[in-house]
Amino acid sequence: MITTERSIELIQNSLDNLLESGMLPEKVAVSLDTVLLGVGAKLDSLGFVTFVTDLEERLTRELGRDVFFVLDDVQDFNITNPFLSASVFANYMVKLSQS
């Protein structure tokens, strides 16, 4: 099981990795309010997919078991008006780590 704080750290690590590979134009200092998807996000759609894939891998390593993100399972995620903040996603990661 991981904490919200650790989830935020993993999100930060993923975004740093994307920055290094040139998929993110500038450094993002992740806080609970950081927008990951939707209006105000620094990532484009494809960047978001890469971010999720990278993060999934990090969480798998962290927990020592296979973890697969399913965006439909994220509480408050609306597919017709996609918006995700770091806090919502961190909470989802915590729940996933408990399941």
């Binding site: 590979s21 998929m23 997919v49 890469t50 894939t53 990278d54």
Partner: peptide
């Protein structure tokens, strides 16, 4: 494709 995306 996710694996490929990581390698671009």
């Amino acid at each position: 494709s996710k694996l490929m995306l990581m390698k671009r």
